[in-house]
Design a protein around this nucleic acid. Structure first.
Length: 589
RNA sequence: AGCCCCAUGGUGUAAUGGUAGCACAGCUGGUUUUGAUCCAGUCAGUCCAAGUUCAAAUCUUGGUGGGGCUGCCA
């Protein structure tokens, strides 16, 4: 039934109040709301970024405002065009459509430079020529105030000259910096005369060799937001202490601006609000850790299905919708929460249960031969069985699957000496083969290691389609507890199935020893090369939904959800297990 | 140690001075040609202490616990 009252998180409530008050323009005008996602193009996006992207995009959508994608490319040493492309793809895949062209911080370098000059002229910034270690030592620490730099009171004209020469590339890396003149004794370290520019003589992926100085993040970020008219700068908790600095920079620029002012109009002052970043148990969101996993080949790449990158989730078979649902589920707060990985898995189960067509696949096959198949017709005959593609959704229709004398069933569905609660096959036991027939085990063979090599059954021709047999003379209907999946041996297709488990065994990887590699799960990847799948998987069939990313996903009945991997070819099918089905039998054992 | 932020069932959240609710997980039962899904029921919470108030999860103060801040990274 319909939703109860929709609850609004603290950021929405704040924006509501701002709009009502006319914080950004006419009271009541919702369309002024502008948000942004500002990644640095130095790596792949992860699931934590998805929260930020979807929050910012969702706000813009909700208010009828704008959502901007801006690359924060202020450090030429670490950034690459290739990452720009992967990030755009991931944002798009998530369903967040940005307004107009993609923006780049580097497009604003000239404007930022002019403002820096303005601050120098206002006596609010100075060039510091000290070595980096001296600057660091003077900054003090958490309990001791800093000391002013000997360069702090350098005359304006000299600062202007030096800064221009920095820009022109007259000095080597690290020779000089531009600093804001704020308060070396501030209890907030960010306010102890923070650096605004450093010299970096390196080519930039977009501006080439135009610049020899590059703005520091703290100087640049708020200005980028201001230039783009961002109303709400949403960021994670660790930037809380930086907010006073961002405010200071904007106010410093706005000093003596406005009507009658000598510097022009005041610039826009965005409102920053912090929320907690996403943390998921058994994972780590650190870009550094992820890079190490890739570089040291603990995984196959940034898009390894075990990675929590957006690309990894995508390749694993997660849908954008499941990620959207997850972000919605965890909500927006300032509390440092640790989301259980199980919640994330539940989201993809929920989505795929609804949307994935059903198929049958035997991952670890053992042969099952029906010994009386020839007694009720041609022993070589193949009967086509009709089965629903989705038990809860008739619109998915039915498909025909072959059934015959020789089948494969799952090895774990047979026990030589099964306990009472084992509702599957064992000597003398009868089970239903889904949409096939009921079969009773009459015999089996083993190899010298004790492995089951073949199972022999008789089938009941009165149970075609898996249906109950007719009642006996007294009106009793024979019942069966278990239903097994199977494939027809002669027509089954070979497939490789990659099964993934969590990459880390610890809830918080690296927490105990300080090294996340100590918590790596050695068995996080299991490749099954001998799987047998039903022939309909060979090519796309009409019942498959039009997945927005064209990745084909299925439920393999009684197993889990699987998608076709990018390594798959018509000659060699490769499936990735996205997630298992919930399994109360495993728990019971 | 200084400054900043946070604290509600197992987990994630709601309640904005007036009945502590929802979801997931768990457990019990029902349906079921997937031990899935679905349905019903059930367990379980305001970090501690003092104060303000007719009334406190909510406001105040103090504690406790957790997170963040000492890059020429973002």
């Amino acid at each position: 039934m319909p939703e109860a009252t929709e609850t609004r998180h603290f950021i929405q409530q704040m924006i509501d109040a701002d709009i009502e008050r006319g914080q950004w323009g006419q009271p009541g005008d919702r369309s002024v709301i502008t948000t942004r996602f500002p990644p640095e193009p130095n790596g792949f996006l992860h699931i934590g970024h998805a929260k930020s992207i979807l929050l910012n995009y969702g706000i813009a959508q909700e208010y009828g405002g704008r959502f901007i994608l801006r690359f924060d490319d202020t450090n030429p040493a670490k950034e690459e065009q290739a990452f720009v492309d992967s990030i755009k793809h991931d944002v798009e895949w998530l369903g967040a459509a940005w307004d107009g062209e993609v923006r780049f911080a580097s497009d604003y370098f000239e404007q930022m430079y002019d403002w820096a000059v303005e601050l120098i002229k206002k006596g609010l910034a100075y060039v510091d020529e000290q070595p980096v270690d001296d600057i660091r030592a003077q900054r003090g620490n958490l309990k001791e105030p800093g000391k002013p730099s000997p360069d702090r009171d350098r005359p304006v004209e000299e600062n202007l000259d030096l800064f221009e020469r920095m820009k022109n590339g007259e000095f080597p890396n690290g020779a000089k910096v531009l600093r804001a003149k704020i308060d070396m004794a501030s209890p907030n370290m960010n306010l102890r005369d923070p650096l605004m520019y450093r010299i970096v003589n390196a080519p930039h992926h977009r501006t080439g060799s135009t610049w020899h100085i590059y703005p520091m993040y703290d100087w640049a970020h708020g200005l980028e937001d201001s230039i783009e008219g961002i109303t709400n700068s949403l960021c994670t908790l660790e930037f809380e202490d930086h907010r006073p600095l961002y405010d200071w920079f904007i106010e410093a620029i706005n000093k003596d601006r406005g009507p009658g002012g000598q510097w022009g109009e005041k610039i826009h002052h965005p409102r920053q609000t912090e929320f907690s970043r996403l943390a998921i148990s058994y994972t780590n969101m650190s870009k550094r850790y992820m890079k190490q996993l890739v570089d040291e080949h603990h995984v196959s790449g940034w898009d390894d299905p075990r990675m929590i990158t957006i690309a990894g989730f995508r390749r694993r078979g997660y849908t954008a919708r499941s990620l959207q649902m997850m972000v919605e589920d965890v909500g927006i707060t300032k509390f440092n929460a640790l989301v259980d990985m199980g919640r994330v898995e539940n989201m993809i189960r929920e989505d795929l249960n609804e949307r994935a067509p059903r198929r049958m696949a035997v991952l670890d096959p053992v042969k099952l031969t029906i010994t009386n198949w020839g007694e009720h017709g041609d022993a070589d005959r193949v009967e086509m069985m009709s089965v629903a593609n989705h038990p809860q959704d008739e619109s998915y229709g039915q498909r025909e699957i072959p059934f015959g004398k020789e089948l494969y069933i799952e090895r774990e569905d047979f026990m030589e000496d099964p306990p009472k609660k084992f509702f599957r096959l064992g000597p003398g036991r009868e089970v239903r083969l889904r949409a096939g027939y009921w079969v009773t085990c009459t015999d089996f063979t083993k190899d010298s290691d004790g492995n089951i090599t073949e199972i022999f059954c008789t089938y009941d021709p009165d149970t075609k389609g898996g249906n109950n047999p007719p009642p006996d003379a007294e009106g009793h209907v024979r019942k069966v507890k278990g239903t097994l999946h199977w494939v027809h041996a002669p027509s089954a297709l070979d497939a490789e199935v990659r099964q993934f488990d969590r990459l880390y065994m610890a809830e918080r990887p690296g927490k105990k020893t300080g090294n996340h590699l100590d918590d790596i799960n050695p068995d996080s990847l299991q490749v099954l090369t001998g799987a047998k799948v039903e022939p309909s998987l060979a090519s796309t069939t009409g019942d498959e939904p039009a997945w927005e990313d064209a990745i084909r996903r299925f439920q393999f009945e009684r197993q889990g959800y699987f998608c076709i991997d990018q390594d798959s070819t018509p000659q060699k099918l490769v499936f990735n297990r996205t997630v298992t089905l919930k399994d109360s039998w495993v728990k019971q054992q």
